[in-house]
């Protein structure tokens, strides 16, 4: 990534973080709930962007990690009262990461379209696990009756109020996005890029590209799990569709629209796509036609994504060569 793009990326992230911090003070009611949903999806997209971009792994199965964590919360939630947030979140994220470890360990050995098919197959396996078998309420899904509570030393913090839940989401997504930003710039990020661009050289330096990619995949899978946990806590409901490959593809669309080679890009992609959905839904029942068109146009017109495109607008003319 060149220096200009990096500056734009950082500036966009800062702008997003500041703007998002104002949400509970400016918006109310339904709008806060929408902002919560968008923020969670932005976190998912950034986590996915981390494996699609630097790791070069086009995962079409990330929704499975997201969905598994959501189901773990649903299954651990008692019918009578709120679950312990720290405990359930830890287990949900650990579960998602463990699933990602299994999927990654097997899939990363395959490259290109085989990797894509492998991740689709695992995602669909997860979907059918919850849809066809007795686990987690079959195709009807399952409920989280009470939003989990945070047990601190002296008090229990409830997140039943939308603004407070939003603040929780904000902090978690901020941590995830910050971690991705930092990882891309760390030594680990450099090794990851090297493994993507020149596998032989990475080996010569003593790193196994397989292991490096797998670590990135598991980290990203765990992050996706955190977002699935938040989604289940927000809506109080989980369904098998959360794991299906269509959900993974939606997250990929966000990554592509914003730009996979940046941290801010996927977040911006998530915001734009979900806002577009929201507007289209008010306008027509067949809003998916609009989403389909947006995707097709985005793939054809700006395959590198919006953030690199904007950064390119400010580039000096000669810099276009090569």
């Amino acid at each position: 990534m060149n220096a200009r793009l990096e500056k734009f990326d950082g500036a966009f992230l800062l702008l997003l973080a500041v703007a998002a911090a104002f949400v509970p003070f400016v918006l109310s009611g339904y709008e806060i709930k929408l902002a919560t949903t968008i923020t969670i999806q932005a976190g998912l997209a950034v986590a996915l962007g981390f494996v699609v971009g630097p790791a070069g792994l086009t995962s079409v199965g990330h929704a499975a990690f997201y969905g598994v964590a959501a189901y773990i919360l649903a299954m651990m939630s008692p019918k009578s009262g709120p679950a312990d947030m720290l405990l359930t979140a830890a287990i949900a994220i650990f579960g998602a990461a463990a699933f990602a470890l299994v999927v990654g360990a097997v899939s990363i050995r395959s490259r290109g379209m085989y990797f894509i098919l492998m991740t689709i197959a695992f995602g669909q396996l997860g979907y059918h696990l919850f849809n066809d078998t007795g686990i987690g309420g079959k195709s009807d899904g399952s409920y989280v009756q009470f939003r989990p509570e945070l047990h601190l030393f002296w008090t229990d913090v409830s997140f039943d109020k939308a603004p407070r839940f939003y603040m929780l989401v904000y902090v978690v997504v901020f941590l995830v996005v910050g971690a991705c930003w930092w990882l891309r710039r760390s030594a680990f990020g450099s090794v990851l890029l090297a493994a993507r661009d020149n596998e032989a050289r990475t080996r010569a330096f003593g790193f196994s590209p397989y292991v490096v990619r797998l670590i990135a995949f598991v980290i990203s899978g765990g992050m996706a799990g955190a977002m699935g946990y938040l989604t289940a806590a927000q809506h109080g409901f989980v369904a098998p569709q959360m794991l299906a490959w269509h959900a993974s593809a939606f997250a990929l669309v966000m990554v592509l629209i914003g730009g996979k080679d940046t941290t801010s890009g996927p977040a911006i992609g998530a915001i734009l796509l979900l806002l577009a959905e929201e507007i289209l839904q008010r306008w027509t029942e067949h809003w998916l036609v609009g989403v389909g068109l947006i995707i097709v146009v985005a793939v054809i017109a700006a395959p590198r994504g919006l953030v690199p495109f904007v950064a390119g607008l400010f580039a000096p003319k000669q810099a276009h060569h090569g």
Partner: peptide
């Protein structure tokens, strides 16, 4: 790359289904 192909065909799926 494959990412563009996957997403282009995903967009087509949405268009055709809807």
């Amino acid at each position: 790359d494959h990412l563009s192909q996957v997403l282009l065909s995903f967009g087509l799926i949405l268009l055709i289904n809807e």
